[in-house]
C-alpha cells in the first residue's frame, strides 16, 4: 500500500458547500497515481461539487485538500465536460478545439507554438480523429465530439483526466468505443482517471475504486463493496439487481411494483 504522501489527491475531513448550504460534510478519500476511480450517485447528490473541489474551482469550507502531499500544489487536469454543455455557433474546427487544451500551459498572452500544435496532433492521433482535424466540431457525431473533447484534455498533458458523464446520451456502439478508449489510456499510459457517471454498469466494469455520493452521505471503496445490491437498493430506493454475465457486471433496477 502506498503512503498518504504519495497520493495524487488527498481529501482530509473536507466539508464542501455553497455559503450555508453544505453539500458534503467531512469527507476523506485519496486518489493514487494511475488509479481509475468512478463517482456515482443520484442526481443532486453532490458529485459535481466534489469534482469542482478536485479541479480547484471550489475551496473547502473546512478540511484539507492535498496534492502530492502539499496543500499549495495544483494538479494539471485534463477536464472533459458534458458535451451537451457546449453549444458552438461558430465553426470551430476539431483542431481549434483540441489546441485549447494547451491554453492553460501557455498562460494569458502567449500564442500556440509548433510544440503545442504537435501536442494537439498527437492527442488527435490517440483518439483516432487526425483525419477530421479540419472538420467543423459542430458537424460531428456525438461520439466524435466526445473524442474531440477527450483529445483536448489529453493535449494538456495532464496529471489526471476527469470526465463528466462521458457516455451520456450515446448509442451502444459509441458508448462502448468511448469507454474502451478511456480504458486504453488508463491501462497503456498509466493515466489517472476520475469518471462521473449515472451509468452504473459502465462504472462497474471499468473502474477499480468507486465513490458513492448521497446527500449528506459518502462512501468510498472497491466496486464489490460499494455496488452491492443492498447498498444500491437503499441509495436509489428501488430494488436493484447486481449480476454478472459472461464476465461483465450487469446492474439492473426493477420498478417498485415488480
Amino acid at each position: 500500500m502506498k503512503s498518504q504522501a504519495q497520493a495524487l489527491v488527498q481529501f482530509e475531513n473536507v466539508t464542501l458547500g455553497y455559503r450555508r448550504n453544505v453539500i458534503a460534510k467531512e469527507i476523506s478519500f485519496s486518489i493514487e497515481e494511475g488509479e481509475f476511480v468512478g463517482i456515482v450517485g443520484p442526481n443532486g447528490s453532490g458529485k459535481t461539487t466534489i469534482v469542482r473541489a478536485i479541479l480547484g474551482i471550489l475551496k473547502p469550507q473546512r478540511g484539507d485538500i492535498r496534492v502530492r502531499g502539499r496543500s499549495s500544489e495544483r494538479l494539471r487536469i485534463g477536464y472533459v465536460p458534458q458535451r451537451d454543455s457546449i453549444d458552438p455557433i461558430m465553426p470551430f474546427t476539431v483542431s481549434d478545439v483540441v489546441i485549447m487544451g494547451r491554453y492553460g500551459r501557455l498562460g494569458m498572452i502567449r500564442r500556440p507554438t509548433s510544440k503545442d500544435r504537435a501536442a494537439a496532433i498527437e492527442a488527435l492521433k490517440h483518439v483516432d480523429l487526425l483525419d477530421q482535424a479540419a472538420s467543423s466540431y459542430r458537424d460531428l457525431s456525438g461520439g466524435q465530439k466526445q473524442r474531440t473533447l477527450i483529445a483536448r484534455a489529453l493535449a494538456a498533458e495532464p496529471d489526471m483526466l476527469i470526465l463528466d458523464e462521458p457516455t451520456n446520451g450515446m448509442d451502444l456502439a459509441s458508448r462502448t468505443a468511448i469507454m474502451e478508449l478511456i480504458k486504453h489510456f488508463h491501462a497503456e499510459h498509466g493515466m489517472t482517471v476520475l469518471m462521473v457517471s449515472h451509468l452504473l454498469s459502465d462504472v462497474a466494469n471499468y473502474v477499480k475504486k468507486i465513490m458513492l455520493v448521497e446527500p449528506q452521505f459518502f462512501q468510498v471503496g472497491s466496486v464489490e463493496e460499494i455496488l452491492s445490491e443492498a447498498n444500491l437498493t437503499r441509495v436509489y430506493d428501488l430494488p436493484v439487481m447486481v449480476g454478472e454475465w459472461m464476465g461483465t457486471k450487469v446492474i439492473i433496477a426493477r420498478g417498485k411494483s415488480v
Binding site: P81, S85, G101
Partner: peptide, 22 residues
C-alpha cells in the same frame, strides 16, 4: 487581440476554461 485566447476559450466552453486557469 492581446487576450484573444481567454475571450475565445471562455466563449466556447467557460467551464473547461476555468479548469485551465482562465
Amino acid at each position: 487581440l492581446v487576450f484573444y485566447k481567454a475571450f475565445i476559450f471562455v466563449s466556447f466552453d467557460a467551464e473547461t476554461a476555468t479548469t485551465q486557469g482562465f
